[in-house]
Design a protein around this nucleic acid. Structure first.
Length: 218
DNA sequence: TGCCAGGCCGGGT
DNA sequence: ACCCGGCATGGC
């Protein structure tokens, strides 16, 4: 019986071998990572790219730009990403936090103590655990593990964890086993999402072709 | 054509 | 501490 650490490293090795480095997050700046993290909540990334293109075209994709734009105009710009009224509010909450916390300087956020910053991000209305960890890892290069629906589904289907395991439990499952390695955490989550997109749909998973087939057995 | 996508909040128990 | 409805577009 392999221990959890060996098992999780084995899954990482399989995915990396099958897919190679994913070079996440697809964005031109840390601030764009944070905006994308909010816009992609329960939404296909394809739709988010349209919304981000609209923000760029409207010269809104900066802390000042999002702060100054009227909420209805912001909602219109991000319409393709869905939930546009809620997400416009969430982006507003985020940039208000940014100006309050670091005078609108996004990079300055990450000079703060990690646990304090994570708590502060979680206290922003519209930023939950996955969004906070995505910002910390992919914009701030902090070694925190990002859990999402694919992570949960893949580990459940391979009899690793319960289907409804809470976010922090699954995050701890990874972080208790793996050394805090920003580059590896970056790739690991990106690889799980890629696996999810490619082989692990909710309906009709293509398990026979999946590179994780047989993982965590025997 | 209905189902799904890289969640999170607020109100109710 | 859970549970659930609401939020909404675009692709297959």
């Amino acid at each position: 019986m392999l221990d959890r650490k060996t098992t999780l490293l084995d899954l990482y090795a399989r995915l990396y071998k099958a897919f190679g480095p994913r070079h996440w997050w697809p964005a031109d700046s840390g601030f764009e990572v944070a905006v994308g993290a909010i816009l992609t909540q329960n939404t296909a990334w394809r739709n988010v790219t349209k919304a981000i293109a609209n923000l760029k075209a409207g010269r809104l994709l900066s802390p000042r730009g999002l702060y100054d734009v009227p909420a209805p105009d912001l909602a219109k710009a991000i319409r393709p990403s869905g939930y546009y009224n809620v997400k416009a509010r969430r982006l507003k909450h985020f940039v208000h936090f940014l100006f309050e916390e670091s005078d609108g300087d996004f990079d300055q956020l990450f000079t703060k103590d990690f646990d304090t910053l994570r708590e502060k991000l979680l206290s922003v209305n519209g930023i939950g655990p996955e969004t906070a960890d995505s910002i910390l890892l992919y914009a701030g290069n902090k070694p925190t593990f990002v859990v999402d629906a694919y992570t949960r589904r893949i580990l459940f289907r391979h009899n690793c964890t319960a289907e409804e395991i809470p976010y922090d439990e699954l995050r701890n499952f990874f972080m208790d086993c793996l050394k805090p390695d920003t580059t590896m955490f970056n790739e690991y989550h990106a690889l799980l999402v890629h696996l999810g997109h490619t082989f692990c749909a909710r309906k009709d998973p293509k398990c026979t072709e999946c590179p994780a087939r047989g993982w965590n057995e025997e």
